[in-house]
Structure formats: structure tokens, C-alpha cells
Computed example of a mutant assay.
Amino acid sequence: MNTALVIMAAGLGSRYEGGIKQITPVGPSGEIIIDYSVHDALKAGFNRIVFVIRKDIEQDFMEAIGHRMETVAAKQGAEICYAYQSLDAIDLPVPEGRTKPWGTGQAVLAAAKYLDMPYMVINADDYYGVDAFRTVHDFLLANHEDQAVAGFILKNTLSANGGVTRGIIEVNDQGFVTDIAETKDIRKDGDHATAAGGKTLSLDAHVSMNMWGFQPAYTRLLQEGFDAFLHSMENPLTDEFLLPIFTNKLIHEDKVKVKVLESHDRWFGITYKEDLPQVLRDFAALYQQGIYEPDLYSDLKKQ
């Protein structure tokens, strides 16, 4: 069965002061985080990679990432596709003063024509780990009805340099999501974590890092939800149509079931500039452990 990976890269460069974090070298030969995502996805068996970008970064993206990824994918019999997220890709007039696109839900819809197969969605600037890709891929092959979310362990996703926002997942006895609560300013505090408002969290709580597994039918629900969102915004200048919030709404309406696929991989990301030295050490450790070869793509076998 064919499976696709959607990499949301339309926000490239917009959140990391001092550089474009998606092309910050983190590997020993200048590899960037996207290199590891593509490697891990191809190794897991995904055979279509869809980059969601903006038209205004297309040339820079192709030079820094796209052409190289096309060469890698071709050797594996996989394809690289491009989709474009834009502010004006809606049937309504763009609100005057609105400057940014409509969020992660719209990013996935930008790739809709490529999603006639089970697919996974990830952020461009997050490292998720080899096992997480394999687990989601295998779930999509075995389960043709339910959706999935990689459930990372909170303590494996925190920054030592400031608070982070995470989607705290509540899980029922059958392993399905019952709620995803966006929780801001989470920081490690001894043997637990604290969040905005003084909330206490277990370091072993499951969290969403925007690594989803979806069936093709989900895309129709997403389109319906986006259309409704556009007609019900409270603040047209800033409101966003976000995957976790919309999917949580569907869960509470009993329109989808989302399986939590627990991952004990350590998430890496550059939330703050000060995170970079630790991320470099983390990647160096993965090589020392034999997770990756010095020539990153040398261990891939044609599926």
C-alpha cells in the first residue's frame, strides 16, 4: 500500500530569530532536521513525500532542500511533491490586515490532491525519532479506519531554556484519545512539570508533537471544518485552523477515533536559539549509538 508523508514547512524561517531553523545544520556533515525526517520516513516505508511550502520561499527551498531530497527519494523509488499554502487560497475575501496563512489544518489541505492514500503529518523543524515513523507507518497499513497520533512522553520534549507549549493527551483504557488540551509555558520542576496558571503535570504525560496518522477520509472532514472555521472566526486577523484543536473537536463529536501510538523517542527541536548546542550533542549521540550511518542515507534499501 502507498503511504504519504506531509511535511509542513510553510512557516520556514518565521519563528527562529537569527536564522532559518529548518536549515540550521545539526548533523556531522551539515545535515538539517528535514534530512532525518525524510530518511526515517523512507526507511519506514513511506513512498510519497509532500512538502508544504510558500511560493515566496520556493526557490530558496529548492536550492537548500528540494533538489537534494528529489535525488534521495528517486533512489528509493519514492516521489517528492510540493504543495503551496497561501493566505488567499480561500473562497472568501482575505480580511484586511491579515498577514499569515490559516494554520496547520490549512497546510494539510494545501496538499489534498496528493492525499489519496493513508498519510502522516509532521512539522518541518522537529526531530521525532526512527521508531515513531515506523510505528505510525505500520498503524496506517494495518488500520484503515482510525486516525493516530504519536504520543511522546512529556519529559522527552522539554527545553532547558524556557517554557514550551504542548498538547496534553488524555487516553482511555483502549488507548484512544479522549482529549487534547493545549497547555502553555510548560517547564520541568524537579520530579514534575508546571504550566501556565500553576498547573502541575506529570513528566510521564503523553503529549502531541503534531505527528499524526490520517486516513484519506479525514481530509474531507478537514475541508468541512476549515469552511466552517472561515465563517465563524472570532478574530479574522489572528485566528488559526489548527490540527490538534480541530481533531480534538471531532473526537468530542464522536466523528473520529484517534489511537495514541506511544513513543519513547526523544524529541529534538530548536524552540530557542540556546537549544542548538544541546541538539547538536543529541544528534552526535545518535551517531555514536549507531542509529545513523556517517553517510546518512547509505542504509536505505529500495522498498
Rank of each mutant, 00 (worst) to 15 (best):
F51S: 04
N161W: 09
N161P: 13
L203P: 12
A74F: 11
A9P: 13
H231D: 10
G167M: 05
T247F: 05
D179H: 11
V26C: 07
T178E: 06
V256D: 03
K113S: 14
L109P: 02
F61S: 03
F214S: 14
G11E: 14
E70L: 14
M62C: 03
K188C: 12
G213S: 02
Q278N: 15
D204Y: 09
I153W: 02
E224P: 07
Q85G: 04
D254F: 00
A89T: 05
A74P: 03
G167C: 00
K113C: 07
T194Y: 01
G190W: 03
R98L: 12
L141T: 10
R220V: 15
T157N: 11
E96L: 09
P25E: 00
V26H: 04
G19Y: 09
L141H: 09
Y114E: 10
D239L: 02
T165Y: 12
I32A: 05
D265Y: 06
Y287R: 07
D35Q: 04
F214A: 07
F229P: 09
V50R: 11
A195L: 12
D138T: 06
M120C: 15
A83F: 10
D299F: 06
E274C: 07
E31D: 06
V121P: 04
L237R: 07
F226V: 00
H252C: 08
P294S: 13
T238G: 03
K100S: 10
D56E: 13
I168T: 01
G27V: 00
D204E: 14
T3F: 00
T194E: 10
